[in-house]
Design a protein around this nucleic acid. Structure first.
Lengths: 345, 345
DNA sequence: TTGTAAGCGTTATCAG
DNA sequence: CTGATAACGCTTACAA
């Protein structure tokens, strides 16, 4: 594999050249560029000199000297997961508006990668980090930068974090399915993340409260293994009449397996889950889901990070956001589903 | 932060501290860290000292002094477009494996934003840039870094670039639809990007060759306006019997409008387009699309960038990649579609 | 307000 | 191979 070696030599124009062209000192140029009050005449001379010389400040030098990097690390599991894509985009927009740079990293749920990236953040001397911790309950060593967790918490550790109200959202999903007449519901949850655990708890509590038969299953993160587990659940004789999937990616895995088995939604089995993607209204009669407030999650994370930076000694805060139940065709009652199919003839 | 004293101990440990702890000079520490040959005994001493002191090199200082940033700028229209998400992920993975950092920017098709980000890249002294140019035919001023274009070219400018064979892929789509018995095909293309233009050309050429009535439409980038244009095309009495959409985002816009009008795919109208997303096999009987080799696009862009950096004087190259036609239910012949619906009763 | 000068933490140079 | 020393390009005391 060819390694990138070369380096382009930039225009050699530095702050001293601008100073000379403007007939002022480098310090004055620096002041103009940083907005410090400067005599208007000099200011104009400097700006003109910047223009004519084509000067571009060297951000590496600036960061080294000023000791602030204006950089935020954003570490997620996989940017291809639409939930993280959306949250990242919001965070990048906010950051850019504040003159901050983002370093984006994908852990693929691998604790080793997460560790490596956190190390990288230290070397970058980042202002702060927004982290969706990899599915792992291990303790994180304390870091030298403010950190805000998104999507997932780390049990027993005190970090600022912003998460969904997973328990009550899962509860709402079960309640909805029961209302629609479903009685044998299977829940599919990530085994390792705290978020998966919370959703399972909400799922089981609601089922118990409503007195229905609900079984929850731990689904591995790897796609192949997940399909296998799903097959076991769906192919048996005692197939559930409804499925709850713990997130959007899993929802897709379920759709894939249902297709393999030739099962139809909602005719043969109802389906509901977490995360609302733009395509979900178009599969079948639409997928019933809990929509996460992705924009608000991103905004809140950025705000919390800023406050943590400003007040390092404040106690850690946990912000729990509500989602929104979007009811679509995939959770229709079996009777209603039959009706709809009859009508469509 | 040291949790006892509240002092930031981390920032204080520099290469000199490591040198002192190891009983060597700072230069030797630097050599060990950069892999330059060093006496094994000293090497071990340094590595141990790095460990005990918890030393983290300061990347800003390293970049300033060494004059290479190991950073690549990646500028796309919108990371939420799954095509860019996928390409970005591939590029980030390759970059990380080579010890390179990525700076990701979204232009939202705004030339001003593109301009601003290109300026930022100069201030970051990036090693190179991978750019999906905003839909705009304007000339770009020459920059001080190697640049590789993806997805779109800039007519009349000499840049390395890697693009899809848009003309023949659009041609293949039309050919397929005609084969399936469709005769009145409407093509929807982005008006401003060169990619949209090329796809339109392939579309029109194929239609002319095959002697069918095909009309191409320029669809604005903004979602609301796009819907309006679509409405005009689909709601009239002379509704086409098939639609070709120029990309995945537009495909979704079409689905939305079809839903509003209560038109069914492929019963009332056939549908095909560009970009293959993971959900597309699940809407209706699946969406017929041209799949772009996203992974290869990313890999090729990185490779070309590396080669451009190594050989700045080489002539610019254009790599044209083939896509793959994935035939699914949305392009079924009207008769076949009727059959399928009959069977499903 | 402005200029002078001293670093920020690292790597490159060059002499030993 | 190793160590002293001088930058890299900028900001910021501190002095004027």
């Amino acid at each position: 594999m060819d390694r990138i070696t070369g380096e382009n030599v930039f225009m050699a124009v530095g702050i001293r050249d601008v100073a000379r062209a403007a007939g002022v000192s480098p310090a004055t140029v620096s002041r103009v560029l940083s907005g410090t009050p400067v005599d208007p005449a000099m200011r104009d001379a400097v700006l003109k000199a910047v223009e004519t010389t084509g000067y571009r400040p060297n951000l590496a030098a600036r960061r080294l000297r000023s000791r602030h990097t204006n950089t935020i690390g954003l570490i997620v599991a996989d940017i291809r997961n639409p939930f993280f894509t959306a949250v990242s985009r919001t965070i990048e927009d906010m950051a850019n508006r504040q003159g901050m740079r983002i370093i984006l990293c994908n852990t693929d749920e691998d604790p080793a990668k997460e560790e490596a990236y956190l190390g990288l953040m230290e070397e970058e001397r980042v202002t702060g980090v927004i982290l969706a911790p990899a599915r792992s309950t291990r303790k994180r060593p304390p870091r030298d930068f403010p950190t805000v967790l998104i999507d997932r918490t780390i049990p027993g550790e005190v970090f600022d974090c912003v998460v969904l109200d997973n328990i009550s959202m899962a509860d709402a999903l079960v309640q909805h399915l029961v209302q629609r007449g479903h009685r044998r519901i299977a829940g599919l949850f990530g085994a390792e993340s705290n978020t998966g655990r919370e959703r399972r708890i909400g799922f089981e509590e609601a089922a118990a409260r409503l007195g229905i038969a609900a079984t929850s299953h731990a689904v591995p993160h790897a796609d192949g293994e997940a399909a296998q587990v799903l097959h076991g659940i769906l192919a048996g004789a005692d197939r559930p009449d409804a499925i709850v999937a713990s997130n959007g990616v899993m929802l897709l895995t379920v759709l894939r397996e249902l297709r393999v088995l030739g099962l139809r939604v909602p005719g043969d089995i109802a389906l509901a889950g977490f995360d609302n993607n733009d395509w979900m209204e178009f599969v079948g009669d639409g997928l019933t889901v809990i929509e996460q407030p992705v924009d608000e999650i991103g905004r809140t994370a950025m705000t919390m990070l800023a406050e943590r930076i400003a007040h390092p000694e404040n106690p850690a805060r946990k912000v729990v956001l509500q989602g929104r139940l979007i009811v679509r065709g995939s959770s229709a009652a079996v009777d209603a589903a039959a009706d709809m199919e009859a009508q469509s003839r």
